[in-house]
Deep mutational scan, measured.
Amino acid sequence: PEDLERKVRELQKNGVSPEQIEKILRRDGVDEREVQELVKKVS
């Protein structure tokens, strides 16, 4: 979803590592495939 992507970009802009971003997304209940997609987009 659009807002998730925005969140991921925000986190990355704040210097959060892709690994941390993955953890955060998983903790928020984002589905694994979605997590991978989002992280791939920003890394």
Rank of each mutant, 00 (worst) to 15 (best):
Pro18Ser: 09
Gln20Met: 13
Glu32Met: 08
Asp28Met: 15
Arg27Asp: 15
Pro18Glu: 05
Asp28Tyr: 15
Lys7Trp: 15
Gln12Phe: 15
Arg9Cys: 12
Lys13Thr: 05
Glu22Arg: 11
Glu2Arg: 12
Ser17Phe: 02
Glu5Arg: 09
Lys13Trp: 06
Lys40Tyr: 13
Val39Glu: 01
Glu37Pro: 01
Asp28Leu: 15
Lys13Glu: 09
Leu25Trp: 00
Arg27Val: 08
Asp3Asn: 08
Lys41Gln: 08
Lys7Glu: 03
Glu2Ile: 12
Asp28Thr: 05
Leu25Tyr: 00
Leu4Trp: 11
Glu10His: 08
Glu34Ser: 12
Val16Asp: 02
Glu19Tyr: 06
Arg27Gly: 08
Val8Leu: 04
Ser43Phe: 15
Glu5Trp: 14
Lys7Asn: 03
Gly29Cys: 07
Glu19Gln: 10
Gly15Glu: 01
Asn14His: 10
Gly29His: 03
Leu4Met: 05
Val42Arg: 03
Arg6Ser: 11
Lys41His: 08
Lys41Ser: 08
Glu37Phe: 07
Leu11Tyr: 05
Arg27Gln: 12
Glu34Asn: 06
Ile24Gln: 04
Glu10Leu: 10
Ile24Arg: 02
Glu2Pro: 09
Arg26Trp: 04
Gln20Pro: 00
Leu25Pro: 01
Asp31Pro: 14
Gln12Met: 15
Ile21His: 00
Glu2Leu: 13
Val16Glu: 04
Lys23Gln: 14
Lys23Leu: 13
Arg26Gln: 06
Asp28Pro: 03
Asp3Ile: 06
Arg27Tyr: 08
Gln20Asp: 14
Glu34Ala: 13
Val30Phe: 14
Glu22Gln: 08
Gln36Gly: 04
Glu19Leu: 08
Val42Leu: 15
Gln12Glu: 06
Ile21Glu: 01
Asn14Asp: 07
Arg9Trp: 11
Leu38Arg: 01
Gly15Cys: 06
Gln12Cys: 14
Arg9Ala: 08
Lys23His: 11
Glu37Asp: 08
Ser43Arg: 13
Arg27Trp: 06
Asn14Trp: 09
Asp31Tyr: 03
Gly15Arg: 04
Pro1Gly: 12
Leu11Ile: 01
Ile24Pro: 00
Arg26Ala: 07
Glu10Ile: 08
Ile24Gly: 01
Glu32Leu: 07
Pro18Cys: 11
Leu4Phe: 04
Glu34Gln: 13
Ile24Thr: 03
Lys40Val: 06
Asp28Arg: 05
Asn14Val: 07
Gln36Glu: 10
Arg27Phe: 09
Ile24Glu: 03
Glu34Cys: 15
Ser43Tyr: 15
Gly29Tyr: 02
Gln36Phe: 05
Pro1Ile: 14
